[in-house]
């Protein structure tokens, strides 16, 4: 069943008075529980596509349904609420809150969801344990390596129990061992919880693990390859 469905979506930026078409009539469907990589050269529209799916950016035209919500028709406040309860984000630069500890970073999303303190603390510990950071829960981001920070970011993304995790170049700043470790964790989450993962990436390590690879070129879908289908 398609949980993300786009219909001729377009996104045009205004770059100093010059209109730049980042997405051009993109039609796409993503099924529940997929582990999908969106690839393409720089400027092909990967991050823009991820941003519009995540409700961070608005569409210029077209229709986009994520879950049972029509993203293109939601107000900014509705979008914030929608993101909080449906989408987990993993960013290239980790983007943890520097003044909070690892466990507080994970708890913070649940605080926004008004989850009780006991449940927050328990779930955050569990998630940090699952990403292998049970001994570092009280460390601040600056006291963690890049790989460890990204694992906290994954735990944070999963804390709200989202339907989708959108990861923008999650391994770009990581060494091979950290990247493989992170992908193992995300793959396990995908398998165990049937959570839908969508990556925007250049990284071949991610592409190799993805079960579906959508290639964008000049803002349009160039190829859409499901690995099970082609080998």
């Amino acid at each position: 069943m398609a949980v993300i469905m786009s219909e001729k979506i377009c996104k045009t930026y205004n770059d100093g008075g010059v209109p730049v078409k980042a997405l051009k009539d993109v039609d796409m469907e993503i099924e529940d529980g997929e582990f999908t990589a969106i690839v393409g050269p720089s400027g092909s529209g990967k991050t823009t596509l991820l941003n519009v799916i995540g409700g961070l950016d608005t569409l210029t035209s077209g229709k986009l349904r994520v879950g049972d919500k029509e993203i293109s028709e939601m107000t900014p406040n509705d979008l914030i609420e929608f993101r909080l309860n449906n989408i987990g984000f993993v960013f290239q630069a980790y983007n943890l809150i520097p003044v909070l500890t690892a466990i507080e970073n994970v708890e913070f999303i649940m605080l926004l969801q008004k989850v009780s303190k006991e449940e927050r603390r328990g779930r955050a510990r569990e998630l940090l344990k699952s990403v292998g950071l049970e001994d570092m829960i009280n460390r601040k981001p600056i006291e963690l390596s890049g790989g460890q920070q990204q694992r906290v970011a994954v735990a944070r993304a999963l804390a709200s129990r989202p339907r989708f995790v959108l990861a923008d170049e999650p391994t770009a700043n990581l060494d091979t061992a950290s990247a493989e470790n992170l992908l193992d964790i995300m793959e396990r989450m995908n398998d165990e919880h049937k959570m839908t993962f969508i990556f925007s990436t250049h990284d071949q390590r991610v592409v190799r693990r993805a079960r579906r690879v959508i290639t964008l070129k000049d803002g349009q879908v160039d190829t859409d390859e499901r690995k099970g289908e082609n080998g």
Partner: peptide, 16 residues
Amino acid sequence: TREFGVLIAVGMKRGY
């Protein structure tokens, strides 16, 4: 500014 952007992106209401 970047941090504000991240907080809003992950679902923090602007009021908070």
